[in-house]
Amino acid sequence: MSTALLRFARARAALAALLLLALFLLAAAAAAWLWPIDPDAPVAAALLPPLADPAHPLGTDRLGRDLLARLLAGARTSLLVATGATTAAVLVGVAIGLFAGAAGGLVDESLMRLVEAFQIVPGFLLALALVSVFGARLETVVLAIAAASWPAPARLVRAEVAKLRRAEFVQAARVAGLRWPEVALREILPNALPPVVPMAALTVAAAILIEGALAFLGLSDPNRPSWGAMIAEGRAVLVSAPWLSLLPGMALAATVLAVNLVGEGLAEALAPRRAAA
């Protein structure tokens, strides 16, 4: 009974998280219509507290820019970077994992050593180094986070592929005369992918955090508002204007939590089906 309750609670949490995430996505996508204020333009007195002026419900920052507009623009940056980096990381990771797992032998060995070489460097430090070398632009931030995130899906897929290689339906496909690349793409890959989906969700969460941390350290694209950068800017006036750091901090925490919960929900949802398959 307790496990059923737990599952129920988890499902509820995942559902709520999914709703929250959808809300964030919608807000980020429709920011220009929902709240048509230029997030970069000084529009009112500086350091207006939240709820003081209905025209600027969340107040303004040090330069008199609307905080709500900046939060929405920051959501865009966060989600753009996170989805971009995750897509790149998953594509590269799956390709390398599939190749290593399917080829086996020396190729597998050397590719896995490469993966390990990336994994022994903490992901955040790797991203930090890459961004400081190649400059703080949106594309480099995306690529740096992707470079730090691809080894995990690669290992996962490789393990799945190695296991599936010996599965009966794969042997059957081989016997039926399919060549290896075909078997790998048509038979093995679709069956190796399900565990990657929840992992991708976790990667998104990690990417949002890495982007936030990079921005906090001043290593984000200065032409785009970013939650991490907003927290860092607000830190200087933490005592006199705490909302400048608190609000983007809360947005960041809520998004990461929501993505994580959705990821967990996906894992739960996908696990039984795999067991049945």
Binding site: D40, A41, P42, R62, A136, P222
Partner: peptide
């Protein structure tokens, strides 16, 4: 990047130039 004010001036100037039709791209270095 050395003063809070030089960084903020960068953000302000970007907006001020935008108003007269000049598109400035901020590049921040150490």
């Amino acid at each position: 990047p050395w003063f809070e004010q030089t960084r903020q001036m960068g953000e302000y100037l970007r907006q001020a130039l935008k108003a007269i039709g000049i598109e400035a791209r901020l590049v921040v270095k150490d």
